[in-house]
Amino acid sequence: MTIVDAHHHLWDPAVGEYPWMTGDFAVLRRRYDLADLLPQLRAAGVSATIVVQVRADLAETVELLELCTRTTTIVGVVGWADLTAPDAAAQIDMLRTGPGGQHLVGLRHGVADEPDPHWLLRDDVDTALRALTDRGLTFDLEITTRELGAANALARRHPQLRFVVDHGAKPPIAQGWHQDWADGISDLALNPNVWCKLSGLVTEASWTSWTPTDLQPYVEHLIRSFSAQRLMFGSDWPVCELAASYTQVLAAANRSLLALSDGERRNILNDNALRFYQPPDASPGDQQ
């Protein structure tokens, strides 16, 4: 079985601002580019990826889209546009018509960093998300337990827009089971237009002592909530390197899915990312 990685990043602190790369995250303040990524993919048997924005500026998305014109490995870009701006729709169209623009599959915003837990329900954001729907694009929900209620209301407000929850909404694994997270995820998953990524869990656990067993209850809850039809694997590389290598993250994901059928594992590890993001020239079953 080949694998599609539905969530990784590339960055270069020399050309953009990454204010979160301080403290324990400061070790990530170096360039991670395609040359760093490709050996990881080859070692893990990953055939295609979706790269996800990190900086809240259009320039990063323009760069990532242009990169897609020079590689066949990255098949889609989850970019950024200012969803609160009056010209948000025009920003989206600019990205779509530039070099590699056909690879824009969706947008993301760092909602968990916003002071307002109901930021997703702003009127201007609502208008921008309708523009996404009209263009057949998607929206990544970068949220935590705090924002699950707003995300639920948003998903009901936009039933035609495909949403995906990044990192399982960041369950506080290192602190222990949190019922508010579990209940919020279950409620959000009742919306058929919401999917979820099995990604980023190792960095929510103890960076130095996590084991796959620590992740298992959270993976099982996500499977119960979304089923194998709406879950997709993501490495969250290179952020994952705070706690685990690329191959360790994939090994943990594979172990957590052992109870599933071959078809269910294929959905999570390959097909669902392509069904959800619908990148150009790629469809479920293509990545053989």
Rank of each mutant, 00 (worst) to 15 (best):
G234H: 01
I223G: 08
R224V: 13
D236N: 15
Q229I: 11
S225E: 15
V249E: 11
L250S: 04
L231Q: 01
L250C: 12
T247R: 05
L242M: 08
G234M: 01
A244C: 14
A251F: 07
A252M: 11
L242C: 08
L242T: 03
E241N: 11
T247I: 13
C240G: 02
F226N: 06
Q229M: 09
E241F: 08
A253M: 05
S245I: 02
I223S: 11
L222K: 08
R230K: 02
V249S: 05
S227F: 11
A243Y: 12
S235P: 14
R224W: 03
Q248F: 12
F226G: 14
R224F: 13
L250Q: 01
D236E: 11
M232G: 02
L250F: 13
A251Q: 05
A243G: 03
S227Q: 02
T247K: 10
A251I: 07
A243L: 14
D236W: 12
T247W: 15
A253G: 10
A243K: 07
M232H: 00
S235Q: 04
R224P: 15
L250E: 00
T247N: 06
G234L: 00
Q248G: 02
A243H: 08
G234P: 03
A244K: 06
R224L: 07
R230I: 15
F233L: 06
S225T: 15
V239H: 00
V249D: 04
W237E: 10
S227G: 06
I223P: 08
T247S: 14
E241K: 14
Y246T: 02
Q248N: 01
P238A: 03
R230S: 08
A243E: 06
S245C: 00
F226M: 11
D236G: 14
I223M: 09
Y246R: 02
L231V: 14
W237A: 07
L231K: 00
S227I: 08
S235L: 05
R230C: 14
V249K: 10
M232D: 00
Q229G: 09
C240A: 02
L242Q: 03
C240M: 01
S227L: 15
F233A: 04
Q248C: 11
F226C: 15
S245V: 01
D236T: 13
M232T: 02
A228G: 09
S245D: 10
W237G: 09
R230W: 05
W237L: 09
R224G: 09
S235T: 14
A251P: 10
S235H: 14
A251C: 10
A253I: 09
C240R: 02
A243N: 06
A253F: 12
L250N: 01
I223A: 08
S225C: 13
Q229P: 03
S227Y: 15
A251L: 11
